Simulated assay, not measured.
Amino acid sequence: MKLRNVLLTAAIVLLPLSSQAATKLGDFPLADRIKAKIDSGKPLDIYVSYHDVSNEFAPAIRAGVAKAATEDKVNAQFIGPVGADANGQINEIETLMGKMDGLAISSVSSDALGPVIDRFLKAGIPVVTYNTDNPNSKRLAFAGQDLVQSGREAGKLMSKVLDGKGKVMITTIDAAAQWSLDREKGVREALKDSPGIEVVKTLNTGTDPQKIYSEIENAMLANPGVTGILSLECCSTPGAGTWVQRNNMTGKVKVVGFDLLDQTVQLVQSGNVQAAIDQAPEKQGYEAVDLLVKFLHGQPIDSIDTGVGIYTKENIDQIAKK
């Protein structure tokens, strides 16, 4: 399945990220070897670490990284573990530490990666976060969606399509991941405003597409009263919509999810998914590189909100043709 890369449209809502003063190179103890490289005019080596390069969201991030590398005239390497493996991510970036002029990272685990980010910064290597933030670290800036707020938006959508009443199951491919915890926090906060809605459970599906579907199928058999499925990410959204379609539950079980995989777009068009939230993955990959390049060339940088794009049957056709 392909994840659609969507430019900003009227559906995009920009949400405020945590405010911080712009970060300047003059305030940062840049490593001498990186200073020398900048002075020599040699291409910079930027590494972009993603928390799971095997998932279906990763290619869109990679495309943005490649675009920025070409436009900014740098060497940008897209790296990361296969599967959500914090130790694997840490070992990889530590092995490459001496080659890096800058690191952009989407952490598998904020707790595990926070101290590592701060260690890289202390060594004079600029670090920004993207896609998944690590706000407890001293990272220089973040490019991506406010995950808690996007969860709130998903919760509001779920409440709207259920008319404020029903039983909801939350699905996620990795319930322990920080991005999942943040989104779920936002969802639950929003659903508290609808006392007629009960969250039955959070279902951890894993990442394999067949397993995702079977986990959803088994959970729905065990919880026949569920009237809403809220997916926290790209990959269990089509699984939920496909379950609705195969079981002739269109309109009876409502689905709200994230990202614009081709299958998700088709399920929104057919009415088996009520809403999908886009987070501009290609832009996230692009900005991850571009923030570091700007910083290393002396420009002040600040966090970038890539927005919340809300797509329903009413407006999905504008991207279905792309």
Score class of each variant (00 low, 15 high):
residue 140 L to S: 04
residue 85 D to Y: 12
residue 155 G to N: 07
residue 117 I to H: 00
residue 157 L to H: 04
residue 107 S to V: 15
residue 122 K to A: 14
residue 96 L to D: 06
residue 85 D to L: 10
residue 138 K to E: 10
residue 92 E to M: 12
residue 109 S to A: 13
residue 119 R to Q: 10
residue 99 K to E: 11
residue 101 D to P: 14
residue 136 N to K: 12
residue 137 S to E: 03
residue 160 K to Y: 13
residue 144 G to W: 06
residue 111 D to A: 15
residue 97 M to D: 04
residue 84 A to N: 03
residue 152 R to I: 15
residue 148 V to R: 02
residue 128 V to Q: 03
residue 114 G to M: 04
residue 105 I to R: 03
residue 91 N to K: 09
residue 129 T to N: 13
residue 137 S to K: 04
residue 120 F to A: 04
residue 104 A to E: 03
residue 83 G to M: 09
residue 114 G to E: 08
residue 162 L to K: 08
residue 137 S to N: 05
residue 137 S to A: 08
residue 123 A to M: 05
residue 136 N to E: 07
residue 154 A to R: 04
residue 147 L to Q: 11
residue 102 G to F: 09
residue 111 D to V: 15
residue 111 D to I: 15
residue 86 A to D: 00
residue 134 N to G: 01
residue 139 R to G: 08
residue 121 L to F: 08
residue 122 K to M: 01
residue 146 D to K: 00
residue 135 P to C: 01
residue 112 A to K: 12
residue 107 S to A: 15
residue 100 M to T: 11
residue 155 G to D: 06
residue 144 G to V: 09
residue 111 D to L: 13
residue 126 P to M: 04
residue 145 Q to V: 15
residue 160 K to H: 13
residue 128 V to S: 02
residue 97 M to Q: 14
residue 134 N to H: 01
residue 144 G to Y: 12
residue 119 R to L: 00
residue 137 S to V: 12
residue 85 D to V: 12
residue 154 A to C: 09
residue 117 I to M: 06
residue 145 Q to I: 14
residue 105 I to G: 02
residue 127 V to A: 08
residue 86 A to S: 15
residue 101 D to E: 05
residue 87 N to G: 14
residue 140 L to Q: 02
residue 149 Q to K: 13
residue 160 K to S: 15
residue 116 V to C: 05
residue 113 L to I: 15
residue 135 P to H: 00
residue 135 P to T: 11
residue 161 V to Y: 13
residue 115 P to V: 10
residue 152 R to G: 12
residue 87 N to P: 03
residue 99 K to Y: 09
residue 119 R to H: 05
residue 145 Q to L: 13
residue 135 P to E: 01
residue 162 L to G: 02
residue 124 G to A: 08
residue 134 N to L: 13
residue 151 G to D: 03
residue 83 G to C: 12
residue 118 D to A: 05
residue 100 M to F: 14
residue 90 I to Q: 04
residue 130 Y to D: 00
residue 160 K to M: 08
residue 151 G to C: 07
residue 125 I to V: 15
residue 132 T to H: 02
residue 129 T to W: 08
residue 115 P to H: 10
residue 85 D to G: 10
residue 142 F to A: 01
residue 121 L to D: 08
